[in-house]
Design a protein around this nucleic acid. Structure first.
Length: 512
RNA sequence: GGUCGAUUCGUCUAGGGGUUAGGACGUAUCCCUUUCACGGAUAAAACACGGGUUCGAUUCCCGUAUCGACUACCA
């Protein structure tokens, strides 16, 4: 049977999309493209209590920012809509009822108090795993224990009920995970999970299976947290009679905290000072703000590249991949099995790499925008040379302006520590002479000529240039470190350099 | 506790019965640079442990340990 590959990303709109979710989306996208199939998105909003306004838009915007937008989604529906489970509500009950008819599911009328009491009773009786299962269901209020008449009358009188799956007592359930191989679980460890909630909504498990089937999903690529319930899902496919089109499963390793142990959480990002979300997010209820990779200055292709390598590698030593190259190289087989600790240093490194290869014009846009925010206009004839001068020095685009501001805006103060150490008589002498030499200089003023003029000036004063070089830098830039000074001079032009030197000369005083 | 899963440098990982166990990030040192960064080079740094199987195990098997996920009318 040759079906078109269809994979889905199925997030819940319960807040900002976590970076682990983004990676899951990415792997789904890569797999779909690689296989010439389709990548779709389904919103799993069956829990009305956890719905967060704005979360869906956030998901959409995140994927679009990264260039991995789904081909079918709530906002761009295909033939398998709707793409929000809340809008598919009316579809689920018939499937649950089908299972009841087949004897694979049953009505349960237990109240939450009764369930709680049952668990307490079992715990008291030292039952290791208190759960609603083949043994305990015989003592609860459900259509297996109640008379047919009572069930009927309860149903008719509108008694709240759920529909639970009837897990067999002792049956081995096996599934062949694409990443982990055969996983076998005995049904005795599973419980009679709720399929339909009393509010008429399906639980994840039911909705997931029904929708994946209806949406013709061929491969389920999701986080490892779903592995324990995968056998339940296999059982559902079997009971529905859909085993022949059951998707293949691939359970992705989890993203872990960089320090210590555990799943990466929002808290970790705050604590360690890096984002765990793709975009900035403000919780609509608490007003709490979380920062995103995009706003921190991560480039989408760098972030994508970084993310792809969190748990996957191409098997050779290449590390820089465009989205297209990732698609080309991607295989599920090369996804790792073990949890991956999140390392922000690597993300920064990727960003630097991408910044280096970005066209000057794109980088210039960042520089111009940031300068503008600063109330400064960068002369257009100097932009390219400024960008080229500083782009190898920065991790984030915002640093472009920080690193080069001094070129456009003459310093009005000077690094005191450097001044106290380097501003001496020799420096003053050389600088004074250089300013004069600059006044009468008439050739092309580039880095080479700026340097040779400076060298000859120092020589004429009988002073070794190396001794005063940092003072020269200080005079013109206000600081003791920065990009190649002679290139800076060339960008500035001889007049401006002379002007700045004179300002420094009149401002700084020589300390013994 | 139970079920399932995982375990190679600090981190991401390659590898796989016989290797000087490879790369990258990070770290350190050196070179380049009359600064800082970039770049280049070098270095330190790993097969969780114990049993098997085998001529030989980091690699295969079994245990143990550790870590993780799950154990809701959440997904």
């Amino acid at each position: 049977m040759n079906r078109e590959v269809r994979v889905r990303f199925a997030p819940s709109p319960t807040g900002a999309l976590h970076i682990g979710g983004v990676r899951t989306a990415l792997y789904n996208y890569l797999f779909a493209k690689k296989m010439g199939g389709k990548f779709l998105l389904r919103i799993e909003d069956t829990d009305q209590n956890r719905f967060v306004p704005g979360a869906e838009d956030y998901i959409k915007e995140s994927l679009e920012w990264l260039g991995i937008a789904p081909e079918e989604s709530p906002w761009n529906p295909g033939d398998c809509g709707p793409y929000r489970q809340s809008e598919r509500k009316s579809m689920y009950m018939q499937y649950a009822l089908d299972l009841v008819d087949k004897g694979h599911a049953y009505y349960a009328f237990d109240t939450s108090e009764e369930l709680e009491a049952m668990r307490e009773r079992l715990t008291a009786a030292r039952v290791v795993q208190p759960q609603y299962n083949s043994i305990t269901r015989t003592q609860m209020k459900n259509s297996l224990t109640l008379s047919e008449d009572e069930v009927k009358s309860r149903l008719e009188s509108g008694d709240p009920y759920v529909i639970r799956i009837k897990i067999p007592r002792n049956e081995d359930v096996r599934l062949n995970d694409m990443i982990r191989g055969w996983v076998m679980v005995n049904s005795s460890t599973l419980d009679d999970k709720v399929l339909m909630k009393s509010d008429g909504m399906p639980t994840y498990h039911l909705a997931n299976i029904v929708d994946d089937h209806l949406m013709k999903i061929t491969h389920v690529i999701r986080g490892e947290e779903w592995l324990p319930s995968a056998p339940l899902h296999v059982l559902l496919y079997r009971y529905f009679g859909w085993e022949d089109t059951m998707p293949q499963f691939a359970h992705l390793p989890l993203l872990l905290k960089p320090d210590g142990n555990g799943k990466l959480s929002k808290r970790d990002g705050d604590k360690l000072g890096f984002p765990v979300f793709p975009l900035d997010w403000t919780d609509p209820f608490s007003g709490e703000k979380s920062s995103g990779f995009r706003e921190q200055g991560y480039l989408p292709d760098a972030f994508l590249n970084f993310l792809a390598f969190l748990g996957w590698n191409p098997g050779d030593e290449r590390e820089l991949f465009t989205l297209e190259e990732l698609v080309e190289a991607f295989t599920v087989e090369r996804i790792g099995k073990s949890g991956t600790k999140f390392d922000i240093a690597k993300a920064k490194w990727y960003n630097e790499q991408y910044l280096k290869i970005k066209p000057t014009s794109e980088l210039a846009a960042f520089l111009i925008a940031d300068a503008k925010k600063d109330g400064v206009n960068v002369p257009s004839d100097k932009i390219d040379s400024i960008v080229n001068l500083v782009k190898d020095r920065v991790t984030f685009p915002a640093e472009l302006w920080k690193e080069s501001r001094f070129i456009v805006v003459a310093p009005d103060s000077f690094d005191e520590e450097i001044a106290s150490k380097k501003w001496n008589g020799d420096a003053v002498k050389v600088l004074g002479a250089y300013a004069v030499a600059l006044d009468s200089y008439s050739g092309e003023f580039d880095a080479v000529s700026a340097k040779s003029l400076l060298e000859s000036t120092a020589e004429a004063e009988g002073i070794k240039l190396g001794k005063v070089m940092q003072a020269v830098r200080l005079a013109v830039t206000g600081s003791g470190a920065g990009p190649d000074l002679m290139v800076v001079f060339a960008i500035l032009g001889s007049t401006e350099v002379a002007k700045r030197i004179r300002f420094a000369l009149s401002t700084l005083t020589v300390v013994a």
